[in-house]
Simulated scan of single mutants.
Amino acid sequence: MTKQLVFIGERISKEKKQLAKELFNLTSSEYKQKSKRYKIEKELLNHTTELIQYLGDSVSTNVQVTKRIEIQATYIGELTTKSGISLKEAIQFISPIRNIIWTTFEKEIEEHKISRLDILSSNKIIDPLIDEVIYILIKIYEENNKEIVEVAYRALEELSVPVIPITEDIGIMSIIGEIDTRRSALIMETALDKSSSLKFKVLFLDISGVEIIDTMVADNLFNVIYALKLLGVKTVITGIRPEIAQTTVKLGIDFKTIDTKSTLAQALKEIGIKDINKDI
């Protein structure tokens, strides 16, 4: 390591606060507004200052700083995602570090006659570290977006298996569409949670909107019925269409032990709830 490289690294570390402020001043107005609104300006500056310190250390010493830089990048990424700062804005905040460093020390570089080779050598050290910071930011944003999508998907799924109380102790769960493994778990969870919290004695499980019932789907339905039975809730399956009934017979699926009704209206009428079709 040459004296010039040590000089460059030490200057970066010494002026880390000034460099961090200049970096922040170059950000977009949206970035500044959001960081101010969520009161993260000070934290961002602190973590950015530490980040620049480690960039300087990487040039002036033989100490491995990659892990430390990853930690600071993670802090910055977590702050920006929670503050509604876009990935583009976050990357635009980090990217100018290179230019700021060389612009700030341009005169000193000339005075100390630092060669282009030394500048190139320092860039070879700094550039991969900055790239790593950007990679970490992208990864954090991807994970955050995945979590947002997961929450939205979960909410949508819950809407797809509504539970409607029709009396103090009777409810209806209407299932529409395909029943896969994931949805089966949701049906089970929703049926148990709602039946328990609403203190149902009877739950009508209407499957008139289910297109296909195979052995896996039937097994999942039987598990729901058995679990509800353990809670003291009787389950009545309604809405088994003729074509579905034929398929289940061919597959050897036996619904004889399950209380079934051809339609939800018929089932409700038998328990004394009339004119249900007007309300459904």
Rank of each mutant, 00 (worst) to 15 (best):
K107R: 11
E106C: 03
N144R: 08
Q18N: 15
V133H: 07
F105L: 10
E106Y: 10
E243Y: 14
D57S: 09
T80H: 05
I240P: 02
I148A: 01
K107A: 14
T66I: 00
D219R: 14
L87D: 00
K67L: 01
S95D: 13
D131Y: 02
L159V: 05
K199F: 01
I134Q: 01
I109S: 11
T61L: 06
I91F: 04
L137M: 03
D259S: 14
I136P: 02
R116D: 09
Q4C: 06
K39W: 00
I94H: 10
S60D: 01
D180L: 12
K107P: 03
N277D: 09
S184C: 08
T260Y: 15
E150A: 08
D219T: 14
N62L: 08
F200Y: 10
V224F: 11
K16W: 00
L44Y: 14
Y31L: 01
L45Y: 14
T215G: 06
V133I: 15
T263N: 15
V63R: 15
I100G: 05
D127N: 08
I172D: 03
F204W: 07
T104K: 15
F7Q: 14
E110K: 15
L45H: 11
E157M: 00
L205I: 07
T263P: 14
L23T: 11
F222R: 13
Y38A: 10
L87N: 06
T235Q: 06
S83Q: 12
L159H: 04
I170F: 01
S174L: 01
T2A: 09
I187C: 06
Y141P: 03
I175Y: 06
T263Y: 09
N277K: 13
D275I: 01
S262E: 12
S95H: 08
S60T: 08
A191S: 14
P165N: 08
S13D: 09
D279V: 04
E142H: 08
Y75R: 12
S58E: 08
H112P: 03
L120R: 03
Q266G: 14
D279W: 02
N144L: 03
E211F: 05
S29C: 02
S174Q: 07
I130G: 03
L117R: 06
P165M: 01
E157R: 08
K34E: 13
S115G: 06
A90T: 14
E70N: 03
P96S: 13
I114C: 08
L19K: 15
G272I: 06
S35A: 15
Y54T: 05
Q53C: 00
E110M: 13
I40F: 11
Q64E: 09
E157W: 00
E43M: 13
S95C: 02
G9A: 06
P128T: 01
T61C: 11
E111D: 12
Y38P: 04
Y54I: 02
R183N: 04
N223Y: 12
E143N: 12
I273H: 07
K88N: 07
